[in-house]
Design a protein around this nucleic acid. Structure first.
Length: 818
RNA sequence: GCCGAAGUGGCGGAAUAGGCAGACGCGCACGACUCAAAAUCGUGUACCCUCGGGUAUGUGGGUUCGAUUCCCACCUUCGGCACCA
């Protein structure tokens, strides 16, 4: 008899350190690029090196790691890389605040975080690590820019852009959030500036970006992207002023064209000045000034009441010939459509409110079906429903179903407009007036214009000696020498572009650089590209739905059209994790003091326990509050596993116990396999806990050491390995099984063993549980019915009522209706 | 305002195709071990109750033999959008 005290203690800190070193030395997680194996590219969104890994990183990365390990055991050739999204504002803000160079700050953070990442025991292939702030990386970010420029997918434009006065830089439309239009990074409301900036032609891909065929992405993300792209079918119509100037408008309701009673231009519209009569000039100019300031002011004080001023000018309705007043109103946005609208108060709520505000006429031209005719003076709101056309000249009487097409055809026929589709999606503004980013590789030559830096001159290196003053100008512009260069075309003195690129540029193609991080003939090795792309599984937060996830799709398509990439989509399957909240159920933040530090947890419990709890405590896509007592349960579980497997016990089990153990083992395997496949991580740990409980019962009944016990132990460790890789490897070795468990075959379910020998049929009377009967799985419906009706409880519950009907669900229940 | 997700014991959560609601864990209670405590192990743990049963998955309806699951309306929480013509 072995003395139980001779069983070693479970010491996670020792075994975790030991195995992490061994795995790294053996290059265990480097894919072998064996062409006979099916490849699996598992990608997790790369972290920003903010300084410390937090529990959210664990939550984002551990379940996908477990799944990558599961795939590896299934025989896939798995590539699971990691890197750092290393350019960005925090580094520069730290430089301003603490007088430390952004590069120094960033790389120190990376060194620290690399160690933290390794402590998780993830199966990252560290050979593939990329750092987007590395010249050998951003050389190719810049190269992509020049390729896009040469293919007319990048262009420069002078336009009103969103500018964050606190971050001192322009922002892309996607980076401006909320009703008060604040900066997504610092929360400061943005202001409008007129600047010459670089854009990518994202809007050219609007239609293609709406196509998600073949993509296994969450519906929510697809919906958010569709809404963001904002496709509307309609018509563009040219109105003319009395002076003959054309004003183009976009409308989704060409069928209401006869109901136009005024036009409205955005305050920024270029035609405003020309149209305004001298009598109205002062008022209009004042209104424009006020509108311009409006974006400077916090919007809280702004009422929803419609405002505007009459220009004094008139336009002519191209279908009716009516003369209608032209107004300026800030509810018309310069950034959507043409910045001018035809207003139909009767059938558009906004126009209705405006018309009521300024006593403009309301003309009903749509008669909604199944409703009484409405009269303008009785209306309390616009009638936006479709219907048959009335008071509409030659189209009067057109029924609802034909009105849109008939009106579209009509305006085309008389040559005043055409059917068009409009998108909300803007071109991507990529210029940033900041230092810590990849310089835009453009040289301005007085003779040759904007010249892209040729490939052999890339990268355009960021200089180190720069002053980081938050002036609103690019720090590179203030550098004494850097901007002065010679034109790559003519060799004459020229100047560099001093803006840097949006960091979303860097993260739009990092998944390609992972494939061959040292390749210097291009952004990636085409051989590796055709082996690994596209990404099979992409995981990360859903907050990137309308930013990174649109950019990277656009980037892939743009690169495809430049002949660089193949295929239409970069990532086939997308899954989003939820968020870990503090113990108080609130978002974790330093100010709330509810932040959970993963390093402390690793010291206290070991990485395997933290991994197990992370996976166990909530549905991964939902997230939820952390519990510092909850994690104790997972710590206990692993200690129980340790003792269950190592501590011997003696006895003579009966056959039924052993059969039950095998049954539970293979049923667990079936469930765990299903759950890994479907990202249902929490029930994997539950199932393994249940199986351990069953093992405890079997062990007490003397099953230890039997063939069935040994099989269960073997399968248990294989199933545990993806979740808790260290303890699984350690126990695997202690049981003298071949290194490494992480390359063992994922087991097959023995369906015969997993089959229930007897099942419990539920017996209901009128849907209420009255009895349970134990039967063989293949029992016939007739037999099940006979057994159910023989039940005393059933007779009692029927209280003498006749049986009207008996429903038998094979293998489940019998419901007696009486 | 519009769009989306969610709402289940004291808590986190489970229920894979409409069929035993509450798996698994936390917490709690009791017991064993201990001088004692911790740790560990075992048992119990939705609510009400006249101990036969009754009531329960945000609220109210509906479909069904049967609804946490499907449909309609509403409430609450969270996330997204913000006059998009």
């Amino acid at each position: 008899m072995i003395d139980p005290t001779s069983i070693p203690m479970y010491k996670p800190e020792e075994i975790e350190r030991k195995w992490q070193a061994r795995w790294a030395a053996d290059g265990l997680y480097q894919p072998d690029r064996d062409p006979d194996k099916t490849k699996h590219y598992a990608l997790t969104m790369l972290p920003y090196p903010s300084g410390d890994l937090h529990i959210g990183h664990w939550y984002a990365m551990t379940p996908p790691d477990a799944r990558a390990r599961f795939k590896r055991m299934q025989g896939y050739n798995v590539f699971f890389p990691i890197g750092f999204d290393a350019f960005g504002l925090p580094a520069e803000n730290a430089a301003i605040k603490h007088k430390i160079h952004p590069r120094e700050w960033t790389y120190a953070n990376i060194d620290h975080m690399r160690g933290q990442l390794k402590s998780m025991g993830n199966s990252f292939d560290w050979r593939a690590e990329i750092i987007s702030a590395d010249p050998k990386y951003y050389r190719w970010t810049q190269w992509f820019f020049t390729q896009f420029y040469k293919n007319n997918l990048a262009y420069q434009k002078f336009s009103p852009v969103d500018f964050c006065p606190s971050c001192n830089t322009t922002l892309a439309r996607e980076q401006v959030h909320g009703e008060d239009r604040h900066c997504e990074r610092c929360g400061t409301p943005v202001i409008r500036k007129d600047l010459k900036q670089w854009f990518f032609r994202t809007s050219k891909y609007a239609e293609e970006l709406l196509n998600f065929d073949g993509l296994d992405w969450p519906e929510m993300i697809k919906t958010l992207q569709r809404k963001w792209i904002g496709k509307s079918r309609g018509a563009s119509v040219i109105f003319k002023t009395e002076a003959g100037d054309p004003i183009e408008v976009f409308t989704t309701r060409p069928d209401t064209l006869w109901g136009v009673t005024y036009m409205a231009l955005s305050p920024e519209h270029p035609l405003v000045e020309k149209i305004t009569t001298s009598a109205q000039a002062d008022q209009v100019r004042a209104y424009q000034e006020q509108a311009k300031r409006q974006s400077d002011i916090q919007r809280e004080s702004v009422t929803r009441e419609k405002t505007g001023v009459f220009t004094g000018g008139y336009a002519i309705n191209p279908v009716s010939g009516e003369h209608i007043p032209i107004w300026v109103a800030d509810y018309v946005l310069m950034s959507y459509g043409t910045g001018a609208i035809m207003a139909v108060p009767a059938h558009d709520q906004r126009d209705f409110e405006f018309a009521r505000q300024f006593d403009l006429p309301i003309k009903v031209v749509i008669h909604p079906n199944r409703k009484d005719m409405v009269f303008p003076e009785e209306m309390t709101e616009a009638v936006e429903a479709h219907g048959s056309m009335v008071n509409s000249g030659p189209l009067t009487g057109t029924p609802e179903e034909e009105s849109f097409d008939a009106a579209s055809r009509y305006i085309e026929a008389i040559g005043v407009g055409k059917s068009t589709t409009n998108y909300r999606l803007h071109d991507w503004l990529i210029s940033r007036q900041r230092y810590w980013g990849a310089p835009i590789p453009i040289v301005y030559c007085p003779h040759c214009g904007a010249v892209p830096v040729p490939d052999y001159q890339l990268p355009v290196l960021l200089p180190d000696d720069v002053e980081w003053l938050p002036t609103g100008e690019s720090p590179l512009k203030l550098h004494p020498t850097w901007r002065y260069t010679t034109c790559p075309m003519c060799g004459e003195p020229a100047e560099r572009e001093t803006d840097t690129m949006d960091t979303f540029m860097d993260s739009s193609w990092y998944h390609l650089r992972y494939l061959s991080p040292d390749y210097d003939q291009g952004p990636f090795d085409p051989v590796q590209y055709s082996f690994w792309m596209p990404v099979d599984t992409y995981t990360g937060g859903s907050e990137h739905a309308t930013m990174h996830l649109i950019y990277t799709r656009f980037f892939h398509k743009a690169a495809r059209d430049c002949g660089i990439t193949k295929g239409d989509e970069p990532m086939l399957q997308l899954r989003n994790q939820g968020m870990v909240l503090g113990e108080d159920g609130e978002k974790m933040s330093k100010s709330r003091g509810n932040v959970i530090d993963p390093d402390d947890l690793v010291v206290r419990y070991g990485a395997d326990t933290v991994r197990a709890y992370i996976i166990f405590f909530s549905r991964w896509e939902i997230g939820g509050p952390w519990s510092s007592t909850g994690i104790e349960g997972n710590s206990r579980w692993l200690r129980r596993v340790w003792h269950m497997l190592l501590e011997p016990a003696y006895g003579t089990p009966d056959q039924e116990i052993l059969r039950a153990l095998r049954r539970k083992t293979h049923q667990t395997l079936r469930r765990v396999t299903y759950d890994f496949e479907n990202f249902e991580f929490n029930t994997i740990v539950s199932s393994l806990m249940e199986l351990l409980n069953e093992m405890g019962r079997a062990k007490n009944a003397g099953a230890f050491g039997s063939a069935e016990w040994n099989e269960t132990v073997d399968l248990y460790l294989r199933m545990l390995a993806p979740v808790c890789p260290h303890i699984a490897e350690e126990l695997w070795e202690r049981l003298e099984k071949p290194y490494s468990i992480h390359y063992q075959q994922w087991p097959e379910v023995d369906e015969e063993a997993a089959r229930d020998e007897m099942i419990t049929l539920i017996v209901q009377v009128n849907g209420k549980l009255r009895d349970r009967i134990i039967v063989e799985p293949g029992v016939s419906d007739e037999e099940a019915e006979r057994l159910a009706l023989a039940s005393e409880n059933v007779m009692q519950a029927l209280e003498g009522r006749p049986i009207r009907k008996v429903i038998v669900v094979p293998g489940r229940l019998v419901n007696v209706v009486g």
